[in-house]
């Protein structure tokens, strides 16, 4: 089945079975391996992508569900070679360890800050609670999202 969607700013068309997992389409067919798969059951959040700007789990979506949507994977977050403020904050605040949860975590944070530009630490913890990290204990990830919120906020108020 031919499926068309707008992926990381580009019109994209794939010819795959309609029920193929979207995460496999991204990782295997389109070679966008930044999206990870950690459990295949919607529990770990490593496969997080943005669909029309909202967090979705690509391991729980079929290819057909991507039809006509605007999809952002981690590869599509940087603009003109400049990383997103959330990515920058993850680098600067030591929020990256093994890095396997990082793409999903970053996208979840981007969506969270989109909905709530000035979250408390507790709200950040809630917003990221669907994304498992086994390395960090989350402390520095929460720090990073807090720092990114400040940066984005300052950017907007200017």
């Amino acid at each position: 089945m031919k499926i068309s969607f707008y992926l990381n700013g580009k019109d994209t068309c794939v010819d795959v079975p309609a029920d193929r997992k979207l995460v496999s389409v991204l990782r295997e067919d389109l070679e966008l391996t930044g999206t990870k798969e950690g459990c295949g059951a919607g529990e770990c959040g490593a496969c997080t992508i943005l669909v029309d700007g909202h967090v979705r789990l690509s391991c729980l979506m079929t290819a057909a569900q991507a039809q006509g949507r605007r999809i952002t994977t981690i590869e599509g977050l940087a603009e003109n070679g400049k990383v997103h403020p959330v990515q920058e904050a993850f680098i600067e605040n030591g929020a990256v360890q093994c890095g396997f949860c990082t793409p999903g975590m970053v996208l979840a944070a981007v969506d969270l800050l989109d909905r709530n530009p000035d979250p408390t630490r507790e709200q950040i913890r809630e917003g990221l609670s669907g994304n498992l990290c086994r390395c960090s204990g989350y402390v520095k990830i929460v720090d990073a999202v807090e720092a990114a919120a400040g940066k984005i906020g300052r950017g907007k108020s200017r």
Partner: peptide, 16 residues
């Protein structure tokens, strides 16, 4: 010092 691998990991470029 920020980890040298952090950039590749936040952009999804790091290959596992």
């Amino acid at each position: 010092v920020p980890r040298f691998d952090a950039r590749a990991k936040v952009t999804g470029e790091e290959k596992f």
